[in-house]
Design a protein around this nucleic acid. Structure first.
Lengths: 146, 146
DNA sequence: TAATTGTCTAGTAAGTGAATTGACAAAGTC
DNA sequence: GACTTTGTCAATTCACTTACTAGACAATTA
């Protein structure tokens, strides 16, 4: 399951992407506009900063902004930062591989076979979903509905 | 993440599928051959029985067997039975849809858009993976490696 | 220097995962 | 019909994770 943490993180980032050229936006504003508990959001933004996804400035007029162009930040990267590896099982993870101790021969494991397929497809979709492209898709959908 | 519960369940089912024509296999044997804590396995098998995936017989010579042909039982069905819905978020679940309260307009949610894609692909893969086809794939892999 | 805003460490309540225990029920064997 | 094997089920345990909150502290700017 997607945790609230990731959901909040993505929401804040999508908003930062929409207002990318506005400069820094304080956590309090992000928190209010997206309905995210402020202290929790600060925790999340801190992790995103450590990962180089977001940049921060303190003091009056400070706040957060994307560290890079919205087209170069994707859902996969964000979910990995906040929720950990995408794979459903460590034995098929690219970023956090771990051998299953109960599995005598990984080559012979049917479960692994299937989970590998799931991971690959999931990664393909999430890494293809950049903040910029997702915002564009939402806008396209809204226009079509009018 | 795939829970141990589901992993154990799938392992037991794959074995039951391999020995489908042998009749009932006691939980104790499944437990020993797959290295699964026996009491925990019984809990899992009970859930699978309630879902009509497995059949049981008590008393001497009793045990468990698949309720249906191994080709008609797929990973998606099993994971739904043991771990709950496949979707990463309730607002894109087929089997347990729930509106997100924090989401004003679902049609405008970029996160939902992406999670829907992930769910659809995940379901396609997991529902295409039957006990029979996965066992066949494992055997093919083993033969190729020899 | 006062106000604003981010940084960081702790802590906590509730829930989930991964089991274990033990009483009980049914079915077959001798 | 007693005995044994095997499944059913409710209850409990324990560690870990999620989703927060509190509060001290640090930096920046008007």
């Amino acid at each position: 399951m997607l945790t609230r943490k990731s959901k909040y993180g993505l929401k804040a980032l999508l908003l930062l992407a929409r207002e990318y050229d506005r400069g820094s936006i304080p956590a309090s504003e992000l928190s209010e506009r997206e309905g995210i508990p402020e202290k929790f959001l600060q925790l999340i933004l801190l992790e995103l900063r450590r990962r180089g996804i977001v940049r921060s400035r303190r003091g009056q007029g400070g706040g957060y902004q994307l560290a890079r162009d919205p087209a170069t930040i994707n859902f996969g990267e964000v979910l990995r930062a906040l929720d950990g590896p995408l794979a459903l099982t460590p034995c098929v993870s690219q970023t956090a591989y771990q051998h299953c101790d109960e599995c005598a021969d990984e080559q012979q494991c049917g479960i692994r076979l299937v989970m590998k397929d799931v991971r690959d497809e999931t990664a393909r979709i999430l890494e293809g979903a950049s903040l910029a492209s997702v915002n564009r898709a939402v806008d396209r959908g809204a226009r079509r509905r009018r």
